[in-house]
Simulated assay, not measured.
Amino acid sequence: MSLATVEAGLKRFGLDRYMMLLILTVLLATFAPARGDFAAALKPITYWVVALLFFLYGAKLSTATIVSGFANWKLQIGVLLCTFALFPLLGLAIKPMVVQWLPTAIGVGFLYIGCLPSTVQSSIAFTSVSGGNVAGAVCAASISNLVGVILSPLLFAVLIPSGTGYGVDPSAVWKIVQQILLPFAVGQLCRPLLADFLNRYKFPTMIVDRGSILLIVYTAFSAGVVNGIWQVVSPTALLIIIGVCAVLLAIAMAVSVGAGRAAGMPREDLLALFYCGSTKSLATGLPMAGILFAGQDISLVVLPLMVFHLLQLVVCAIISQRMAARLA
């Protein structure tokens, strides 16, 4: 059996190379975590890699696409409501139940998921594979992330209960703007010089996109392993996290589809709402967590986000491939 055959078989279950690399990265951090000087050296590298990622996002994104996407107000409002209204309410409902069985930091992590923006690359890719409104998905995902830079930490600050030991320092918002929004804005300014190159050669952008996430995952979980995360999170606790993430994803997907149908959206817009409205961004969530939860046990807070991200990729990959098969 060839490697290509094995990869094709795994892909039918949503397990592509990126998924396997994410799992291997967690295993690498578990058995060979970054420590001491090596861990300290990774911090500035991670910071600038994330800044480079959002610079490339800005350079690739057509301003005309965002402007034209605003005309489809049902789709844009639908994605924003799912992302920044439905999810925070679900996070608030889930947190009190989760902390009965799991550490408080993990309950905070579920609330944190609710405050994050939508994915960019994966939601657009899944929309495209399914035959959905790609331009609408590009606009919706981009607006979600731009709004999320400011709104996500503010939402979390409002929703997090006092006495949990977790909060948002006002200076954190400015740090997030510096690392994410400013590079994006500079990328937009540089777009006339770089757009043709980035559209012609997509591989460098993909390397930065995937590589930045893998690097952040490795550094976050390395810190967690050094602090004994796997002594706190038992196999039973991990199964509970997976189950709660599955329920959260299922509810978000069901509500997004129901809302889209109730609004009379065409199939193409409904698919864009489904993928953009039910997914959460790891690329934005991890660096933001590094700023918001600096000095705290970040690995426990982002563990639900990691699990949710892997789960959403698997489920969306399977659904999008089935949708593509129907169109064939």
Rank of each mutant, 00 (worst) to 15 (best):
V225R: 06
G109H: 06
Q231M: 15
V149W: 00
G228I: 11
E7T: 09
D16R: 02
P103Y: 05
G36I: 10
G58Y: 01
A317I: 02
G36S: 12
L56R: 02
A237N: 13
A254W: 12
L81N: 13
T104A: 14
V177R: 00
T236N: 14
T284A: 09
F70K: 08
L102M: 13
G258F: 07
Q76G: 07
A39P: 00
A140C: 03
A325M: 14
A252S: 15
L194H: 05
A195C: 08
D297L: 08
S162F: 13
K60H: 12
K280V: 04
W48D: 06
S142M: 07
N199I: 09
A137H: 04
G58I: 02
F184V: 04
N72H: 14
V50M: 01
V168D: 00
A32F: 06
I229W: 02
A272E: 02
L270Q: 10
L300Q: 15
F38V: 15
T63V: 15
L248Y: 15
F110I: 09
M1G: 08
L53G: 03
G132R: 03
K280T: 07
F110M: 08
G167H: 10
L52Q: 06
L155E: 01
L61E: 12
A185Q: 07
Y18E: 13
V255A: 05
G295H: 09
S281L: 02
G167P: 07
N72V: 09
F87S: 15
N133I: 04
F70Y: 11
L292T: 01
M323F: 12
L10I: 05
L292N: 00
P103D: 08
L238P: 12
G114T: 06
Q178D: 13
C82Y: 09
A32S: 04
A246S: 11
V98K: 03
G91W: 00
G14L: 03
L198K: 06
V168R: 01
P192V: 07
L3D: 11
L81M: 14
L282G: 02
I251P: 03
I216F: 12
R267V: 08
L42G: 00
V98S: 05
F38W: 11
